[in-house]
C-alpha cells in the first residue's frame, strides 16, 4: 500500500507564545525531492502471481515518475488560538489547563519561486477549528475537527506538496480523529481547494451500563463520521459506529460519494 519518494532536506522552525492562548510558529524548509522505483535483486521465493506495484499511485502497473526531481524552498507560518484558554502560573512556569472552548488554527504556506534554485511557485492557506473531548455529562463526550484550505496560487507544485488527506484502506489502523477510515490516501490529494469535517461522539457506556451483566465489560459506545469535498473528491461522506474498551476499538462503517455507496466494512484499531 505505501508509496515512497526520497527527500534531502533542511528545516528550521520556531514556536512561541504570542499571548495567552495564542501560539505562533514559523518554519523554513529546503528540500530536494526524487521519485523512487521499486527493485529487488534477491528473492527468497518468486511468486509469479504477484508483483510490486509502482511507487506512482496513479499508474500501479508501470513505474512512471510522478514528478521530476525538483527543489522546493518554502515557508510556513501558523497561528493557533484557543478560546478561553486558562492557565496556572507556578514558580517553574505557566501551565495551560484543558480549555472548554475550541482551538482555531490558521496557516499560510508559501512555495518560493526561483529562490535558492527553487522549482516551485505556490501559496496555500488553511483554517481549522478543533476541539477534543467536549463533555456532555452522562451522555459522554464529543470531539470534532473542521477545516478548509485553498491554493490561492498553484502555478507550480508537485505531488508531494499537494494537500493530502489522512486516508486509510486497512482493516487495522491506529485511530485519529483526522483520519478518513474508508478513503484511499493518495488518489484525492489536491492542488486546489477542499473542505473537511470529522466528528466523533463517545457515549462512555451510557447505554451498555444499563444492561446488568454487560456493564461489567466496561464497553464504551461511539459513533462518528467524516466529510470531504474537493475538485478531486466531491461530497464524500462516511459514518461508523462501534465499541471501545480502553485502547481497543472495533467499528463498522459506510462510505458514500454523494448518495452512492462506495464501501462498507469493519475497522479495528
Amino acid at each position: 500500500f505505501p508509496k515512497f519518494y526520497e527527500k534531502t532536506f533542511v528545516n528550521l522552525n520556531t514556536t512561541r507564545e504570542l499571548a495567552s492562548g495564542l501560539q505562533g510558529s514559523l518554519s523554513l524548509d529546503y528540500a530536494r525531492n526524487h521519485t523512487l522505483t521499486n527493485s529487488s535483486d534477491f528473492k527468497f521465493f518468486d511468486n509469479k502471481e504477484r508483483e510490486f506495484t509502482s511507487n506512482n499511485p496513479f499508474t500501479p502497473t508501470t513505474e512512471t515518475p510522478l514528478f521530476p526531481t525538483y527543489t522546493s524552498v518554502s515557508a510556513t507560518a501558523s497561528l493557533t488560538y484557543t478560546i478561553g484558554q486558562q492557565y496556572i502560573t507556578r514558580p517553574d512556569g505557566k501551565f495551560y489547563t484543558e480549555s472548554k472552548y475550541p482551538r482555531i488554527t490558521v496557516l499560510y504556506k508559501k512555495g518560493f519561486k526561483d529562490l535558492l534554485g527553487s522549482n516551485v511557485d505556490y501559496d496555500f492557506v488553511k483554517a481549522e477549528v478543533y476541539q477534543d473531548r467536549i463533555s456532555l455529562g452522562l451522555w459522554g463526550y464529543s470531539s470534532f475537527l473542521v477545516g478548509a484550505g485553498k491554493f490561492i496560487n498553484n502555478n507550480q507544485l508537485y505531488y508531494p506538496d499537494f494537500k493530502h488527506f489522512a486516508g486509510n484502506i486497512s482493516t487495522i489502523f491506529p485511530p485519529n480523529l483526522r483520519k478518513f477510515q474508508y478513503l484511499d490516501f493518495y488518489q484525492f490529494s489536491t492542488n486546489q481547494q477542499y473542505f473537511e469535517a470529522h466528528a466523533e461522539h463517545n457515549f462512555a457506556g451510557f447505554f451498555l451500563n444499563k444492561v446488568p451483566l454487560l456493564r461489567k465489560a466496561k464497553l464504551e459506545e461511539f459513533i462518528g463520521g467524516g466529510y470531504l469535498s474537493s475538485p478531486e473528491k466531491r461530497n464524500y461522506k462516511e459514518f461508523y459506529f462501534g465499541l471501545q474498551r480502553l485502547v481497543l476499538r472495533v467499528s463498522y462503517g459506510f462510505a458514500y460519494d454523494g448518495g452512492r455507496k462506495l464501501t462498507q466494512g469493519f475497522r479495528i484499531s
Binding site: K3, N13, T14, T15, F173, S189
Partner: peptide, 21 residues
C-alpha cells in the same frame, strides 16, 4: 519559545503524513 532545526536524507511516504496507514 522553542527553536529547532533538522536536516537529513530519507525515504518518506508520498502523502507526507508520516504513516503507512
Amino acid at each position: 519559545a522553542t527553536v529547532g532545526a533538522s536536516f537529513g536524507n530519507g525515504i518518506f511516504d508520498l502523502n507526507n503524513l508520516g504513516s503507512m496507514t
